[in-house]
Every structure is written in C-alpha cells, then in structure tokens.
Measured scan of single mutants.
Amino acid sequence: RTVITEEFKVPDKMVGFIIGRGGEQISRIQAESGCKIQIASESSGIPERPCVLTGTPESIEQAKRLLGQIVDRCRN
C-alpha cells in the first residue's frame, strides 16, 4: 500500500473548529479516515493554514472530504 503525503490548506480562523475541544474533532477525523493530519502551528499571518496529510490516497481523500465538511459547516 502506497503511503503519500499531501499538503492541504484550511482557513486559519477555522483551525479551532477543526481541532475541536481537547483535539477530539481532529482525532475523530484521523480515526475515521485513517489519515494522519498535522496542522501547522503558525499561519504566518496568511489566511490559510497548511496541513500535512499522510496516508493512502484513499485515506487522504476521505480526510479532505471530512475537513471540507467542517469548513462548510462553519462558514454557514
């Protein structure tokens, strides 16, 4: 099985929602997708915060879908 790493950007102001209380939301996304997610600790003042996704191509797609759902929910 091929493990790859891909960068994905999330809106900086939504990082708190993505991580969740005590990290529970990000842990759930990682468990559900099987993908490791590392969010940069600093956005360096830019509106997007880079995340590094590591896993199989399928797990990365699943993680991006779950992250996208959270971002959409927070935008509305």
Rank of each mutant, 00 (worst) to 15 (best):
R1I: 13
R1T: 15
R1V: 11
T2S: 14
T2V: 12
V3P: 06
V3Y: 10
V3C: 08
V3I: 15
V3M: 12
I4P: 02
I4R: 09
I4D: 06
I4K: 12
T5M: 05
T5Q: 07
E6C: 13
E6N: 03
E6W: 02
E6M: 07
E6H: 08
E6K: 13
E7A: 08
E7K: 13
E7R: 10
E7M: 06
E7N: 15
F8K: 02
F8G: 02
F8S: 04
F8L: 07
F8C: 02
F8R: 01
F8E: 02
F8V: 09
K9C: 10
K9N: 06
K9P: 14
K9M: 13
V10D: 02
V10E: 01
V10T: 02
V10I: 12
P11N: 04
P11I: 02
P11E: 06
P11F: 02
P11A: 03
P11V: 02
P11W: 02
D12N: 14
D12T: 09
D12A: 13
K13H: 15
K13A: 10
K13S: 13
K13V: 03
K13P: 09
M14H: 08
M14K: 02
M14V: 04
M14Y: 04
M14F: 06
V15P: 02
V15L: 10
G16E: 14
G16N: 10
G16H: 11
G16A: 11
G16F: 03
G16R: 12
F17S: 12
F17Q: 12
F17L: 09
F17K: 15
F17R: 13
F17H: 12
I18H: 03
I18R: 02
I18M: 08
I19M: 09
I19W: 07
I19S: 11
I19D: 09
I19Q: 11
I19R: 11
I19T: 11
I19H: 04
G20C: 02
G20A: 06
G20P: 02
R21G: 09
R21F: 05
R21K: 13
R21I: 06
R21H: 12
R21E: 14
R21L: 10
R21V: 10
G22P: 03
G22T: 08
G22W: 05
G22N: 14
G23M: 08
G23P: 03
E24K: 15
E24T: 14
E24P: 03
E24C: 15
E24A: 14
Q25M: 12
Q25L: 05
Q25P: 04
Q25E: 13
I26P: 01
I26V: 13
I26R: 03
I26Q: 04
I26H: 05
S27W: 04
S27K: 15
S27T: 15
S27H: 06
S27Y: 03
S27F: 05
R28C: 04
R28N: 06
R28W: 06
R28Q: 13
R28D: 08
R28T: 09
R28S: 08
I29W: 01
I29S: 01
I29Q: 01
Q30S: 10
A31T: 11
A31M: 09
A31S: 12
A31D: 13
A31V: 10
E32N: 04
E32M: 11
E32I: 11
E32H: 04
E32C: 06
S33V: 03
S33R: 00
S33N: 01
S33G: 01
S33K: 00
S33P: 01
S33W: 00
S33Y: 02
G34Q: 10
G34F: 02
C35N: 01
C35G: 01
C35W: 00
C35R: 01
C35Y: 01
K36N: 08
K36I: 06
K36W: 04
K36F: 03
K36Q: 09
I37D: 01
I37L: 05
I37F: 02
I37H: 00
I37E: 01
I37S: 01
I37K: 01
I37T: 02
Q38T: 11
Q38W: 06
Q38P: 00
I39Y: 02
I39T: 02
I39F: 06
A40T: 11
A40M: 09
A40L: 11
S41A: 12
S41M: 09
E42P: 12
E42H: 14
E42I: 05
E42V: 11
S43T: 11
S43I: 15
S43G: 11
S43F: 07
S43D: 12
S43K: 06
S44A: 09
S44I: 09
S44M: 10
S44H: 13
S44R: 11
S44L: 13
S44Y: 08
G45E: 10
G45P: 09
G45R: 10
G45F: 06
I46E: 15
I46G: 14
I46W: 07
I46K: 14
I46L: 15
P47F: 07
P47H: 12
P47D: 11
P47W: 08
P47R: 09
P47V: 11
E48N: 07
E48A: 05
E48K: 08
E48W: 10
E48H: 06
R49Q: 08
R49E: 04
R49N: 05
R49D: 03
R49S: 05
P50L: 11
P50A: 11
P50M: 11
C51A: 08
C51V: 14
C51G: 03
V52G: 03
V52Y: 06
V52L: 13
V52T: 11
V52W: 10
L53H: 00
L53E: 00
L53K: 00
L53C: 04
L53S: 00
L53D: 00
L53I: 13
L53W: 00
T54W: 03
T54V: 11
T54D: 04
T54P: 00
T54Y: 07
G55H: 00
G55F: 00
G55N: 00
G55D: 00
G55A: 00
T56W: 02
T56P: 07
T56S: 13
T56L: 05
P57R: 13
P57N: 07
P57Q: 13
P57F: 07
E58N: 07
E58S: 10
E58A: 12
E58H: 03
S59D: 07
S59M: 05
S59A: 11
S59F: 00
S59K: 04
I60W: 00
I60Y: 00
I60C: 08
I60R: 03
E61A: 12
E61G: 13
E61P: 01
E61W: 06
E61F: 12
E61Y: 07
E61C: 08
E61H: 12
Q62P: 01
Q62K: 13
Q62T: 13
A63Y: 00
A63W: 00
A63S: 02
A63K: 00
A63C: 12
K64W: 01
K64A: 02
K64G: 01
R65K: 14
R65M: 14
R65Q: 14
R65S: 12
R65F: 15
L66V: 06
L66C: 06
L66E: 08
L66A: 12
L66P: 00
L67G: 00
L67P: 01
L67W: 00
G68L: 11
G68A: 09
G68R: 12
G68S: 09
G68V: 13
G68Y: 11
G68N: 11
G68C: 09
Q69V: 13
Q69P: 05
Q69I: 15
Q69M: 12
I70D: 03
I70E: 14
I70K: 05
I70V: 15
I70Y: 15
I70C: 13
I70L: 12
I70A: 15
I70H: 07
V71D: 05
V71I: 13
V71P: 04
V71K: 05
V71Q: 10
D72E: 14
D72M: 08
D72T: 07
D72C: 05
R73V: 12
R73M: 10
C74L: 08
C74R: 14
C74W: 13
C74T: 14
C74G: 15
C74P: 10
C74S: 13
C74M: 13
R75L: 11
R75Y: 04
R75D: 08
R75W: 14
R75F: 14
R75K: 15
R75Q: 12
N76L: 12
N76C: 09
N76Y: 12
N76P: 14
N76M: 14
